[in-house]
Design a protein around this nucleic acid. Sequence first.
DNA 1: ATGGGGCACTGATCCAGATCAGCTACCATC
DNA 2: GATGGTAGCTGATCTGGATCAGTGCCCCAT
Lengths: 236, 236
Amino acid sequence: MSNPCNQCLARRGTICSALDDAAVAQLFAVANVERHRAGTWLVNPGDRADDVWMLRDGHAHVSRITRDGKRQILAFLFPGDFFAFTQEERYVYGAYADADLLLCRLSRARFEAFVDATPELDRRIRAQLARSLDSAQELIFTLGRKTALERVASFIWYLQYRQRKLGRSGPRWAIPMSRTDIADFLGLTSESVSRAITQLRRDGLIDLPVAGEVEIRDMPRLRELGVVIAEPVARD
Amino acid sequence: MSNPCNQCLARRGTICSALDDAAVAQLFAVANVERHRAGTWLVNPGDRADDVWMLRDGHAHVSRITRDGKRQILAFLFPGDFFAFTQEERYVYGAYADADLLLCRLSRARFEAFVDATPELDRRIRAQLARSLDSAQELIFTLGRKTALERVASFIWYLQYRQRKLGRSGPRWAIPMSRTDIADFLGLTSESVSRAITQLRRDGLIDLPVAGEVEIRDMPRLRELGVVIAEPVARD
DNA sequence: ATGGGGCACTGATCCAGATCAGCTACCATC
DNA sequence: GATGGTAGCTGATCTGGATCAGTGCCCCAT
């Protein structure tokens, strides 16, 4: 497997150590374990939505594509992430392996039965779904109301936030996806992403010491730029 | 209560009849029932995320606002919808009453305990969360990759789809929100929404027989315009 | 009935980001 | 170490939707 956990960029709060948990280990025991090669589709739009999946190793993304070939990435998937919980009869999106993958597949019926019987896992699944929804709403806000520069700033801020949550303190790390992937996630073109990164560098908010790596130089200003929500009046 | 169920526009698949169910009735019994006046905030960004809510009557929306006052509506809420399942410690969004509301509020701890003890309700909550995620991903796709005209077409298509799911067959019905609300949902301005509606009418896809009501005149073309996904190769 | 306030619509202009068109650096392969 | 292929960056131009500036209409209060 080409991408160990040090490139992990799981959704906010989805920590890889989830894998250590007894209930999840039990789930692994019941599920089919599958391998997929980098560059293949795990799920195709139009397939019957009969299964539920969990990613154990590698990274992938979920995307939708328009008739005229425009792509929108809905989420990046990393070790520990469950996906394909749709309530539709068929998937409307596809899931694509960005690296060699190891994953668990469970039929929906077996999954339901197993979860019903395992309250601990059940709470965990609810929490994961709620977190996926948090992430999706964050992206909706980004796509709906941020400028290109703000989108890219918030993306880098988010990468950094993830690193920190995973216990890695360094302000410098590898960006695990291409400019085109970032663009298709942020609703931009790769040119606009390039320009935004250049501007962030010129303004001294970030640096690209080596190709493929970022370093944050001015945390407060990057946050100010990317996290544009009105400062709430913290009432309890 | 000003808005009975005939204006219901719940998320895809969230049908009001959920209210009839025994498990949900049981939930009502444990929860605090509250009333809120139209035009007030139920939830403010920055509040501690200690409670879970369910809307029983009226309609509301969930939104986030930028420092410079731009608003993004994340979801419209209608009778039967649960909301505020965030895993964050505090809400990052607000929820606003668009009409007089009747709702149930449950502390997170009590909610967890109750759901654990009621497998039927538990499955229902998981399904609702998955449906919310489906809707959110639909909106991500719309915001990321559709033109203004396509966004408005898909919004009207979606209203129609809902009407049909709720068992109402007529091709004509009231739009239950303002142009500004539609714009803030679709990542546009109210001017752009107006222009798109005018164009759809000029092109004969829809009609506005009375102010505040729409009628679809050309279903296939409206669908073609709004639902822009690549036609999948249906494999099983 | 009359005045006023808000909402939908429309026209004119502007601008952020898309599009088109290179250019360069970095590889992988022979 | 030549060679081709790809990813990232940048410059020039174009354009869809935002912004600004109205107008008309409906509803409500006096």
